[in-house]
C-alpha cells in the first residue's frame, strides 16, 4: 500500500484532471484517510472534483511523538463531489515493545448539503470509517472488546471569505459516534465505556491563497481506563496548486497506552489527479 500510494502520489502530482473546486477548498488528508485536517474528518470531499467530475488522490502522513510513530498512506476517490471513498493503511510503531500495529480503514463520506464557500448554511456530510486491525493481539491484551469497528460521523464546515479583517476563515465541527481506542489502534470498546458521541473541531485562517494556519481538537473516550487523552494539534498547510498539498503540524496526543506527554511532529503530503 505504501509504495502504491507513493507511486500514485508521484504520478498524480504531475497533472490534474479535476480542478473544478477553488484552491484549498478540499482541505487535506486526515490520518484515517478521509478529507479533513490532520486528525479530524471534514465535511469537504477529497479532491478537486465538482459535481460534473470525478477525482483521485493519494496521500502519505507521518506522526512522530515521544514513544510512538504512526505512518499512514491511503487513496481517495471523489465521485461528482457527492461521494468520497477512501482506503488507508496505518502502521503504528511501538519501539518499547518492538512491535508494529497495523490497521486498515475503508471509508465512505456522503455530502448531504451545501458548499463550504457558496451555500448560505455550512456544508454538511456524513461518513463511516470501517477499521480493522490486522493483528489484534495488543488490543486484546490491553482490554479491548473488539479488533474491528465502525466510526460514524457527521461533519459541517464553512469558509467565510474575508471574515477576519479580510482574511478567509475556515471552521469545521464533527460529531463522531465511536468506541475506538486510540483511533482503533488499541482496538474497540473496553470495560470503562462504550460507543459514544465525541466532539471534534478544526479552525484555520488563510494567510494567503496557498497557506493556511490552524488548530484542531479531537475528543477521546477512555474505554480502556488507560487515561486516553483528547488530541490537539497546531498546523500549517501549503496548497500551492490543485495538484499537491503539504501539511506540517505540532501534535499533543497526551497519554497513549499509559505513557504520557506524547507530543511531537506531523507531516503529510497529498497528490491530486
Amino acid at each position: 500500500m505504501k509504495w502504491f500510494s507513493a507511486l500514485l502520489l508521484l504520478v498524480l502530482s504531475q497533472s490534474a484532471l479535476a480542478d473544478g473546486k477553488l484552491l484549498a477548498t478540499p482541505g487535506v488528508s486526515q490520518i484515517e484517510g478521509s478529507a479533513g485536517g490532520g486528525i479530524v474528518p471534514w465535511a469537504q470531499l477529497a479532491g478537486y472534483a465538482s459535481e460534473d467530475e470525478w477525482a483521485l488522490s493519494a496521500f502519505c502522513s507521518r506522526g512522530d511523538v515521544k514513544n510512538y510513530r504512526l505512518d499512514v498512506c491511503g487513496v481517495q476517490a471523489n465521485l461528482f463531489d457527492r461521494i468520497e471513498l477512501s482506503y488507508a493503511e496505518q502502521d503504528f510503531a511501538v519501539p518499547a515493545l518492538n512491535t508494529n500495529i497495523e490497521q486498515d480503514i475503508s471509508a465512505i463520506k456522503v455530502r448531504l448539503y451545501g458548499d463550504i464557500v457558496y451555500s448560505d448554511w455550512p456544508q454538511l456530510s456524513v461518513g463511516i470509517q470501517h477499521k480493522s486491525l490486522q493483528d489484534g493481539t495488543v488490543a486484546t491484551l490491553v482490554g479491548a472488546e473488539h479488533t474491528s469497528g465502525n466510526d460514524v460521523y457527521v461533519a459541517m464546515s464553512k469558509l467565510h471569505l474575508g471574515a477576519l479583517n479580510g482574511y478567509n476563515w475556515f471552521w469545521n465541527v464533527t460529531g463522531r459516534y465511536s468506541d475506538a481506542n486510540q483511533v482503533g489502534l488499541l482496538g474497540f470498546g473496553g470495560n470503562h465505556a462504550g460507543k459514544q458521541w465525541l466532539l471534534e473541531a478544526s479552525t484555520a485562517v488563510f494567510l494567503s491563497r496557498e497557506f493556511a494556519m490552524g488548530v484542531e481538537f479531537r475528543e477521546k473516550a477512555n474505554n480502556l481506563g488507560l487515561g486516553e487523552s483528547h488530541w490537539r494539534d497546531v498546523f500549517i498547510a501549503w496548497l500551492p496548486n490543485k495538484s499537491v498539498s503539504v501539511t506540517a503540524a505540532w501534535l499533543d496526543l497526551g497519554s497513549i497506552a499509559g505513557v504520557d506527554k506524547q507530543t511531537g511532529w506531523y507531516v503529510s503530503i497529498t497528490g491530486y489527479f
Binding site: Y118, L161, G162, A163, G166, Y167, N168, S208
Partner: peptide, 18 residues
C-alpha cells in the same frame, strides 16, 4: 490588489453565483 481586499471583493460577488 492586496490579499485581504481580494477576499472582501470575492465575498461581495459570491452570493451572485446562484
Amino acid at each position: 490588489i492586496a490579499h485581504p481586499v481580494q477576499n472582501q471583493i470575492l465575498a461581495k460577488l459570491a452570493p451572485m453565483r446562484s
